[in-house]
Design a protein around this nucleic acid. Structure first.
Length: 478
RNA sequence: CGGGGCGUGGCGCAGUCCGGUAGCGCGCUUGGUUUGGGACCAUGAGGUCGGAGGUUCAAAUCCUCUCGCCCCGACCA
């Protein structure tokens, strides 16, 4: 523990790998590219789940479970889909010592198996909309992995909904993007994100439109934070899902799918962390307040612990931990909990008991405050909100400071040169896929998102000079 | 798949070139002194050196084969 962390500003990649493991969020699994999520990391995931479940349910989606094994022929039914996922597919080819007649794909995502099933559930317009959400893990073969950001197996939720019309599906996909995901990132994770849609090249294989939220990490690279797809009639046609409408006419359903993964944990780490370690956004923090009791002599110990436990009971509405570990100095504990990113530290010692007060220390600013017990609840509530606001404002300022309008390809190349991230580059683009591909090959920057609030502005494509109606967001991404 | 690196107590590493009874730091045990910003002293436990084969009186060290992991590129939530 005494080892210093790698520098957050100078060696971001190493900082990330070290802090994720040292703060007990996660560790490497025994199988290559897999991840063990430890209790502290999983508690964060549970808080994410709780927040999102409420929003999904508000929009009528119900949780269900679908099998991990998918007959491999299913994957092949949607043309774009199979092309998109084939390189990442895990296959189960044997069971019980026998080679299987048909190999099973290990779920890379559940569109195909869901569509295969719900065809039987949907006969009439009265069966619509059908709104499902799954919490599960997905498997994608990956060459290069990083804890939380890219692993061969990851946890996520995948929503799948079925609607009478394309427009209704589109509306639902947007509603989830805004009311669930954007709300989550802004109000829970304290992360500013840019909402918009993906280019044709970057969209989900099998989707008509992919909506997305794009975030900017502390090293200037972008992170796709979630996606919400309007799948249109593509899967309905591949899996022949039709219903009788009010006029007794057979219609294809329109569908959506939308997902947010444990990658979001990587996003939280990379957005808020600093040289001291993690910095948990208060509304998701597994531990919001840690109590560090302080005493010198044996005799003081019992009284201080007793007082600490009383304070803990007062703070029943919060996620509080009492650090009663023996033989560790307070200084060690301060550093330990700062490294783990707990938003508020509460110190209580003999002097405080005498004065009927406690000491609160903010993780984000280091500010120390002596608080009378009578005001503790109000103060904690306010402080957690302030920390949330501060984290969001900080991240927003970082995003603003690292967003650049770029008008020449020379400048574009200059900004994307080198190893690190390049920030968000707002540049004109002709809309042509070949230009997009060429830019990626020449600069390693991709179009992350075409913002909803794109300013209609005449300009010339950064690469080919053809006409463009507005800027899109380029970045080097995770 | 291309390039680089590494496998030695729980963790991080030295030792390998030049063969000779396996070492350091952290952590852990026990006892004592400490404790409002990363405590100290003493004590003890813990390793068939990734695996297989070979050379040798003798292999962590030399030879052959093999397995695995990490980092950097192309692909990707």
């Amino acid at each position: 523990m005494a080892d210093p962390l790698p520098s957050h500003s100078e060696n971001f990649a190493e900082w990330y790998n070290t802090i994720v493991q040292r703060a007990d969020l996660a560790d490497y699994g025994a199988a290559k590219g897999t991840m063990i999520i430890k209790p502290y990391g999983y508690a964060l995931w549970e808080n994410i789940q709780e927040y999102l479940n409420k929003r999904f349910k508000k929009h009528g989606a119900k949780n269900a479970f679908f099998p991990t094994f998918i007959p491999s022929s299913f994957i092949e039914k949607e043309k774009d889909h199979v092309e998109g996922f084939a390189p990442n597919l895990w296959l189960v080819t044997a069971g019980g010592g026998e080679v299987l007649e048909e190999a099973y794909a290990v779920r890379p995502t559940s569109e195909t198996t869901i569509n295969n099933t719900v065809g039987k559930w949907i006969q009439s317009y009265r069966d619509l909309p059908l709104l499902l959400n799954l919490w599960n893990s997905c498997f994608r073969y990956e060459m290069r992995t990083r804890l939380f950001l890219r692993t061969s197996e990851f946890l996520w939720q995948e929503g799948h909904t079925f609607h009478a019309t394309w427009d209704e599906a589109d509306e639902y996909a947007r509603a989830i993007l805004f009311d669930a995901y954007l709300d989550f990132y802004v109000n829970a994770a304290a992360m500013p994100v840019i909402a918009g849609r993906k280019s044709e090249k970057e969209k989900f294989p099998g989707a008509d439109i992919t909506y997305t939220l794009e975030g900017l990490m502390g090293d200037g690279r972008a992170l796709q934070s979630c996606t919400s797809h309007n799948l249109g009639h593509n899967f309905a046609k591949s899996f022949d899902i039709r219903y009788l409408d009010r006029n007794n006419e057979l219609q294809y359903v329109a569908s959506t799918s939308w997902g947010l993964s444990t990658r979001s944990i990587g996003g939280i780490v990379m957005t808020h962390g600093d040289d001291k370690g993690l910095l948990m956004p208060p509304r998701l923090a597994p531990t919001q307040i840690v109590i560090v009791p302080i005493f010198r002599k044996e005799g003081e110990g019992a009284a201080v612990l007793e007082a600490a436990k009383r304070v803990m009971r007062d703070l029943d509405d919060y996620r509080v931990e009492l650090d009663a570990r023996e033989g560790l100095t307070p200084g060690f504990k301060y550093n330990d909990w700062e490294m783990r990113g707990v938003p508020i530290r509460l110190e209580i010692g003999p002097k405080d008991i005498e004065k009927n007060q406690v000491v609160l220390v903010r993780r984000d600013t280091g500010e120390k405050k002596f608080v009378p017990l009578a005001h503790l609840l109000d103060e904690v509530k306010m402080m957690l909100n302030h920390i949330h606001d501060t984290l969001y404002a900080r991240a927003k300022k970082f995003q603003d400071d690292n967003t650049f309008s770029v008008d020449s390809y020379d400048e574009f190349k200059q900004r994307t040169a080198g190893e690190g991230g390049a920030g968000l580059l707002m540049a004109h683009w002709c809309g042509d896929r070949e230009c997009e591909t060429a830019i990626q090959q020449e600069t390693r920057a991709t179009i992350r998102v075409i913002p909803f609030d794109q300013v209609q502005e005449k300009g010339k494509c950064i690469r080919c000079g053809n006409e463009s109606n507005g800027r899109v967001v380029f970045a080097k991404a995770y």
